[in-house]
Design a protein around this nucleic acid. Sequence first.
DNA 1: CTCGTATGGATAGCGGCACTTTCCACTATC
DNA 2: GATAGTGGAAAGTGCCGCTATCCATACGAG
Lengths: 209, 209
Amino acid sequence: MSMRIAELGRRSGVPVPTIKYYLREGLLPAGELTSPNQARYTDAHLHRLRLVRALVELGGLSIAAVRDVLGALDDPDMSLHKAMGTVSAAVAPPDVDVSDEVAHEQARAFVERQGWDCPPDSYAFKALVGVLTTAREVGQHRFVDLLDGYARACAQLAEVDLDYVLRMASKDEALEGVLLGTFLGDATVAAVRAMARREVSERHAASEG
Amino acid sequence: MSMRIAELGRRSGVPVPTIKYYLREGLLPAGELTSPNQARYTDAHLHRLRLVRALVELGGLSIAAVRDVLGALDDPDMSLHKAMGTVSAAVAPPDVDVSDEVAHEQARAFVERQGWDCPPDSYAFKALVGVLTTAREVGQHRFVDLLDGYARACAQLAEVDLDYVLRMASKDEALEGVLLGTFLGDATVAAVRAMARREVSERHAASEG
DNA sequence: CTCGTATGGATAGCGGCACTTTCCACTATC
DNA sequence: GATAGTGGAAAGTGCCGCTATCCATACGAG
C-alpha cells in the first residue's frame, strides 16, 4: 500500500518533521519520487519506521547506533553471527574500562569454566569485564560468585532464543528476529526478572514466618 | 579516613567540578565543615561517589533517577521489597504505552499462568506490557510464546540473586546489594546472554553440517 | 608573616543530541 | 483558483550532564 508522508506519520504515530529528520539521517530510505517534490511511501517504510522507534524507545539506542544496526540488517552479506556482533556493539556503552587485571582474570576464568569460546576482544567479554570492574569498585566482592548461576540460566535463555529464530522462514526475517530478540529479550528479561525476584522474595518471607 | 575534595576526586577518578555538581544536586551529602569554606570528606563519601558513577555509567540512570534511588537507600524505613520497586521505577522509561489491550491480556495471562502475584500497576508489569506492545508493532507476533521459557530461566536467576542477598550481614548492606544486584545483574545477564547465544548458535551450526 | 595554591559556594556557559520550526518553491486536490 | 500538503534545506530549541569562571577565604610551605 502506498501513501504520502502525512499518512505515514499518522499510522506510525511519529510526527512528520521527525520522519523528515530520520530520512535526512539515513534511518529511513527515501520515498519514490513521482515529481520533484512529491514522494510515495510503502508499508516497508512504515515497518522500518516502527523498527526505528522500537530501537530508540525500547532499546535506548542513539540515532547513530540505530543507523549502524539497520545498516547490518540491509547488508546482503550479513550472517546471523556477524549481526549479533553489530547489535552487541550498538548496545554497548562506548567506553568500557577493561584495564582492571583482576576483573579481566575473573571473566577469563569464567569463560574457561563454561567451556565457552569467547574472545577477549568481543563486546560481550568486554562488557562482562566492565561489570566485574564496577562490582569491585563498589565493594561487591562476592558478585563474581553469581556468574556460574547466571550462566546456567542464560544458556537456557539462549536455547529459547535459538528455537525462536530457527522457526523464522527467511534469512531476512531471521536477521530481524535476532536483532529484535536481543532488544525485546533484554527488556523482557529485565521485567520478568523483577517479577520473579519479587515472587521468590515473598515466598522466602512467607517461609520465614 | 578523612580527605579534602581534591583527594576525593583523585581517588575516585571524578573531576572536582563534577563532584561539586553532585553535591549541589544532592547526590552526595555535604562534607563536614571545619570552617566556612573548608570541608572534610570520608571514605563513606568516596563509596557513595563510586556508587553514583556506577549507576550513571553502568545503569545509564539520569541524575534525577540516581537521586531517587539513593533516597531509598538512605530511608531507614525502607524494606527490601519497597527498594526493589524504587529501583524498577528508576530503570523504567518514563512513558510506557500500556493501552494495547492485546498486549495487556498477554501479560496478564502470563502472570496468571506462572501463578505469580504481580499487580497490573507495578512497574514490572507495565514494562512487560510495553515490550509486548512493541513486539506486536514490529510484527513479532510469536514473541509472546517465549515468555514461559524466559520465566523459567528468570526464576532461576531470582534464586541465585536471593541467595546472594541473604548472605549479606546487615540490612543496609542487603539494601545496597539488592540495588546493585539489579543493575549489575541486568548488565551481566545481557553480557552472559550474548556469550551463551553465540555458543548455542555455534553448536547448532556445527551439528547442522 | 607571606605568598601561592586550594576550597566552598554561586552563577554562567558549553557541547551534544534529538528533535522542531521556519521557510521556500512547488504540487495535488477540492 | 484557492487551500492544504510536500520535499528539501537551514536554523533554532530544550534538555541534560557537566565545565568554566569568580570570589572571599583558608591552608600550608618557606
